[in-house]
Write a protein that binds this DNA or RNA. Structure first.
Length: 747
RNA sequence: GAGCCCGUAGCUCAGUUGGUUAGAGCGCUUCAUUGACAUUGAAGAGGUCAGAGGUUCGAGUCCUCUCGGGCUCACCA
């Protein structure tokens, strides 16, 4: 007989093992085939692709949220007899992982510059391998009914092959191009980022008013002045009409130089002095201005390098870090009498790296881009046609906005942890490429390929290769195979999102034979709203491009989990809820229920200890109600079944609850479904009906039937306790179906 | 500057085509308790659904405006 209290810890791991032993999560298992054979919906396919968490990161509460929501959807569909699969996986998480690994290297007194790229890749691979069980084990602990026999990792060979095929197809279709543009470069992380990966931080900074010949102009970045190639004023600015088109002489820190004055509407005559210096290689607006005025302006000059130091163009300031150089330059300008004034309380937004928080430098770098216009239009069209539905407070509108305004996608990343671009440079055609490699003496060598080849063999360069920076006009070949010994492969890797945007179809195409036809398009993509444009939007673009079909029919976006006061959780605030701790303390069921009950698509949710206690109590309530019903069933075994006065009302209500909960689940009202079940089970079934049954107003057997229905309806939400009770019923021979997880949904 | 979301009980939040006395959890008050459960039960206090106007037989729900909070994007060098 059951204990008087339900102790989640005593049951959960055994229950999960029981499910695995019966292969309950695999659509091809006997038990699920039998379930489907009896179901009207047996022909209907239902698939969910799990958003792959970072392979070597412990889970946070957001993961618990997605596991719970998706598990509810999947368990419901499975019990409804649909051909159901939930495909799990993990992500190599390019920059995230390399960033963490580099911190580890730093602790050991090393840095990425000490290794050639193949060695570094291998080291990260091993590191991830050591830790990759973490995420998977924790997902299991959360009760995920995912089919582990279909598990995939983003760097699995077959996955990579398909990703590269997609790239090749895009290249063949003319969607890929290489160009030299300003990129968002993080000197600390050593890589460029797409616009989406740049954060903006409000800051108070200084606005320096500097003398430029007859003008005074305001700038926040005096250290880039050595890259000035012109000055700009507004075409209608009366003050400066006489100078437009003229060259003026400017006194500088490295001697005098000349700048031409151009007229451009981008200049706001009201701001500062109405004069702007044009520094095309270090400011996005200036770069655009330079492109408009190429005929009037000289070639741009790069003053800041990829390590965040000034280049030789800065004369005596060369090799200084940007911040140091700025201080020094301001001081020197002041001494020379070129600094007119400083506005110290200037407020603006600084672009910072979303990963490390350091300032982003706009820098010129040839990169590979994908033309997005056709891809985004195709997505908009599907949305117009209602082929894809978005659940989540207003986020559909945000998706639309992005689709209409997305700029071409920079897919090159200067890191090693990722899928290397299948781009090849023929050596004899690219002798001007800039190369960095580690020679056999473990020395880091940089230089022009032609010069390096005089001292080193091509094999030595290839083996120690760190970085190739081919010229802007470089000729290249796209090939998934090595085209020959006279080629060097591009050292850039794909943006992580380039591979994860293909996740729904690559996982299905490279799984059991027939999976793609059987499960694509998938039913629902469920994820947090904060990666809507990084991931969901791009999955739509890539899925439609590659397969002609949107990769999913529904998008369910959940909100962020916040603390009891509604504050965002963060390590520095110390208010982080660790799902594993909650699971240990209150049980996984309590964790799951607390996260999703009364949650609403697209909106954030606060949780506190009180919430977990309340849902833990639900498990206990269910356990004890079951105990009572079993006890009374045992006692009344000999008595004939008699009809009682409230039987009919009981059955009707039970039916109504089943209908309502099913409807809620099918219309993505998951928080409402949970709330309904909680209240109806506790306050109606327990508080009311059990009491009535004690008075003989409801038939005991009917109560048992009611219990079975509640166990089934509650199972997707709190799978462990419901299954634990079910197994007691199996032991007592009271039910036919051996596993609740693969039992039929009530009608 | 633009867009999006939110404002419902002391706190955290549900309330999807507008429809009976507006709900839950936690907290609070009083009482109960040997046929399951104190991780319990019963009863109760507590809301002019941010404010104003409008549409309607009827508005927490739809429209307009105002105020307050949050998020995102874009920005003046």
């Amino acid at each position: 007989m059951l204990d008087t209290q339900y102790q989640a810890k005593d049951h959960e791991s055994q229950i999960y093992k029981l499910w695995l032993d019966h292969d309950c999560f695999n659509p091809d298992s006997k038990i699920n085939q039998n379930l489907r054979a009896k179901s009207k919906k047996g022909q209907e396919s239902y698939s969910v692709i799990m958003p792959p968490p970072n392979a070597n990161d412990p889970l946070h509460v957001g993961h618990a949220m997605f596991v719970t929501l998706e598990d509810i959807m999947v368990r419901t569909a499975r019990m409804q007899g649909k051909d159901t699969v939930w495909i799990p996986g993990t992500d190599h998480a390019g920059i995230e992982t390399q960033f963490v690994f580099e911190k580890k290297l730093k602790k050991e007194g090393q840095s990425r510059f000490n290794f050639d790229r193949e060695t570094l890749f291998k080291m990260i691979w091993d590191y991830v391998g050591e830790n990759s069980a973490i995420a998977v084990d924790q997902i299991k602990k959360l009760g995920a009914s995912a089919d582990w026999s279909r598990y995939k990792f983003t760097l699995d060979q077959d996955i990579v092959k398909t990703v590269l095929e997609t790239f090749t197809k895009m290249n063949d279709d003319g969607l890929v191009y290489r160009t030299n543009r300003l990129v968002n470069f993080c000197p600390k992380c050593g890589t460029a980022f797409s616009n989406l990966e740049v954060d903006h931080k409000e800051q108070d900074t200084s606005l320096y008013y500097i003398k430029y010949g007859p003008f005074v102009l305001a700038t926040t970045r005096p250290e880039t002045k050595f890259g000035d190639t012109g000055l700009a004023v507004h075409p209608d600015d009366k003050r400066y009409q006489q100078y437009i088109g003229q060259e003026i002489e400017v006194e500088g820190l490295n001697g005098n130089f000349n700048l031409r004055v151009i007229a451009d509407e981008m200049v706001d005559p009201e701001f500062g002095t109405g004069v702007v210096k044009i520094t095309p290689y270090h400011d996005f607006n200036d770069f655009a201005a330079w492109q408009r005025h190429k005929a009037e302006l000289p070639e741009p000059i790069q003053v800041v390098d990829f390590e965040g130091r000034l280049t030789a163009a800065a004369g005596k300031y060369a090799r200084l870090k940007v911040a140091v150089a700025r201080e020094q330059i301001v001081k020197d300008l002041e001494e020379k009498g070129l600094l007119v004034k400083v506005d110290k309380n200037y407020h603006n937004n600084l672009s910072v790296c979303y990963r490390c928080g350091n300032p982003i430098e706009p820098l010129p770098l040839p990169q590979f881009y994908i033309k997005v216009k056709g891809l985004t239009d195709a997505v908009s069209q599907r949305l117009d046609q209602g082929e894809i539905k978005v659940y989540g407070a207003g986020h559909d509108k945000i998706l639309r906005h992005w689709l209409d305004n997305l700029e071409d996608w920079n897919i090159s990343r200067q890191i090693v942890w990722g899928i290397r671009l299948p781009i090849w440079y023929k050596i004899e055609e690219n002798l001007d490429a800039q190369i960095t490699f580690i020679d056999t003496e473990k020395q880091r060598v940089s230089g022009k390929l032609s010069e390096l080849l005089e001292k080193y063999s091509i094999d030595e360069i290839r083996n120690g290769l760190q970085n190739i920076n081919a010229s802007i006009e470089a000729k290249y070949l796209v090939s998934q195979e090595n085209p020959g010994d006279n080629y060097l492969q591009e050292t850039d890797t794909f943006d992580t999102w380039f591979s994860s945007s293909q996740w729904p179809f690559v996982t299905l195409m490279n799984n059991k034979p027939g999976d793609f036809e059987r499960f694509y398009p998938t039913a629902t993509m469920e994820t947090a709203y904060d990666i809507l444009m990084f991931w969901v939007m791009r999955m739509l673009m890539m899925g439609i491009y590659k397969t002609g079909k949107a990769p999913f029919k529904n998008i369910y976006l959940h909100g962020l989990i916040r603390d009891a006061k509604g504050q965002k959780m963060s390590k520095s605030k110390g208010n982080v809820v660790n799902p594993m701790e909650i699971s240990e303390k209150y049980g996984t069921d309590a964790l799951r229920m607390a996260l999703i009950i009364r949650s609403s698509a697209g909106l954030d949710k606060s949780v506190s200890d009180g919430d977990f206690k309340a849902t833990r109590n639900l498990s206990n309530k269910l356990w004890n109600a079951s105990r009572f019903i079993l006890l009374s069933k045992e006692e009344n075994k000999e008595k004939p079944i008699a009809n009682c006065s409230n039987d009919q009302a009981f059955e009707e209500k039970l039916q109504a609850i089943t209908k309502e909960v099913t409807k809620n689940l099918e219309s993505f009202q998951i928080g409402v479904a949970a709330d309904t079940l909680y209240n109806e089970f506790w306050h109606w079934f327990c508080d009311q009906c059990i009491e009535e049954s004690k008075k003989g107003l409801i038939n005991q057997d009917l109560m048992f039937k009611g219990l079975l229905i509640f166990l089934k309806l509650l199972h997707p939400f709190i799978p462990f306790v419901t299954e634990a009770i079910w197994q007691e019923l199996v032991k007592e021979n009271l039910v036919e179906e051996k596993i609740l997880a693969s039992s039929a949904w009530p009608e």
